[in-house]
Amino acid sequence: MRVRRFVALARDEVPDLAQEILREIRREHPHLPLVLDESGEPRALVGIRRALEHFLDHLTSGPDRPQVHHRVFQEFGRGEGLQGRTLDSLQAMYRLGVRLAWRRLAEIGQRVEIPPPAMYELAESGFQYLDGLVDETVRGYAEAAARQAGERLRLQRRLLDLLFAEHRSDPAEALAERAARIGWPLPEQVAVAVLLRPAREAMAPAVGQGVLLDMEPEQPRMVVPEPTAAGRAELLRRSMAGWSGAIGPPVPLHRAVKSLRWAAAAVALMERRLLPAGQLLQCTEHTEALVLLPPEELIEDLDRRLLAPLAYCGPTHGRRLAETLLAWLESRGGAPEVAARLGVHPQTVRYRLRQIRELWGDEVDDPDRRFELELVLRARRLRGELAARLP
């Protein structure tokens, strides 16, 4: 009987109590916007009032009556998520509302002389009800966050598709429109990275704000704005812990596809172990390898034609002659300079240079032939077929 009287008195105070709770929430959270429903009433006020009414209904209803109106509070959570508020701020609002509501309900309980044990049960029921509200609100909030994240990813992919397309005309207007939709300030320069996954289930690297990361491809891609800005390289190095890949050279925004090509070429060489792995490799520091190694067919054909004389020298002696020829071409010096580069005696170099003259004749004095010989020999060294150059 006392519970029914308690519920009746509390129901009369629900409208004023809901207004008081909303006022206090807005005082604590002054930037909370008032979104109106179809009737022109603040949705937050409607939600508070319904929560109080449903709780009071629960006190006098049977066990089959649902405790929480799922749709109402899921929609509230979705709305708050779309407004950009955090879960912490949402839960703080709930706690404030419950504190105010419980203060008023405790006063009513004293007026109708509800015994303390019964009030404790009432409080426990109230907190259980609050848990249900929070669960439904969080579910709606999570749905909104997932929807927003999915929409942003879709818009980001559209921007990346345009960035990585070949352009016959200036794409500035289209890029600006797509970038604005995800709040990405257009940079003057970008560098594009291609990444190698450490494992299929690996967490995405924690790249800094403004960096576009596309995890959809088998080899994820990353667009770094203003890559030469102070501190950018160090931030990238830290965020890429556990990941490896290559980042292309800085290029104007509308030429991002060119940076992507260099990064992809470098990653291909990393996979063949022709470039060092286990880090975010800077393409600008490996220009020689990127120029000489990818056009394999052309370089190999030139190699076969120019270095054919070595086929008659045996593998070991042929490699030594090739190393001596390359050192001579690079140093443009005499036997002492070449010997210093190779770490051998100058007399050994003189002997090998005489053999080189016998094998190639006057061709080694032709500037064009010297250039081609140096190209194919450098390519061999990059592939690990010749000894590395001494420091």
Rank of each mutant, 00 (worst) to 15 (best):
L359K: 01
H286D: 04
W360A: 12
L34K: 02
G278L: 08
E143H: 14
G208N: 11
V68F: 13
S39F: 09
G318T: 02
T284M: 15
P187Q: 06
L36M: 05
L326A: 03
D368Y: 14
A180P: 01
R5S: 04
M222P: 02
C313H: 01
L36Y: 11
R304G: 10
M1H: 11
V3A: 05
F164S: 07
L130Q: 15
L100R: 13
G245V: 02
R71A: 15
D16A: 13
P15D: 01
D64K: 03
V194Y: 00
I356T: 05
P227N: 05
L17S: 09
D57V: 00
R389C: 12
L275C: 06
R320G: 06
W243T: 06
A193Q: 05
A106N: 13
V267C: 11
P276E: 09
L162A: 07
T137E: 12
V190G: 00
L329T: 12
M203V: 10
H54A: 13
L353W: 03
T137C: 09
E24G: 04
R111Q: 15
R78Y: 09
D366Q: 13
V338N: 05
L163T: 04
C283I: 04
P250E: 04
L52G: 06
L307Y: 03
L163P: 05
E20D: 08
G242S: 10
A268C: 01
A149G: 06
V207L: 14
L82G: 14
R221F: 02
D362L: 07
E113G: 13
P42V: 12
A10E: 04
D64C: 05
P217Y: 00
P250L: 02
R43S: 06
L9S: 11
V251K: 03
P252G: 11
L163N: 10
Q128R: 15
S39E: 14
L293P: 03
E136K: 04
D365K: 08
R357L: 15
E271A: 10
R43I: 11
E24C: 01
E337V: 12
P295R: 08
T86P: 07
A193M: 10
D366G: 07
A199C: 08
R380C: 05
R305M: 05
L236E: 10
W184F: 03
A289T: 10
G334M: 03
A118E: 14
P336Q: 12
R50D: 08
W328A: 08
R71T: 15
G79N: 06
R381F: 00
E330G: 04
L382P: 01
L105A: 04
T287R: 11
R370K: 09
M270L: 14
R95Q: 13
L293E: 13
E226T: 08
G62C: 07
E323Y: 01
R178Q: 14
A174I: 00
M270H: 04
R378F: 14
L45W: 13
Q74Y: 14
E330Q: 08
A206V: 10
D362N: 03
P66E: 02
T348Y: 08
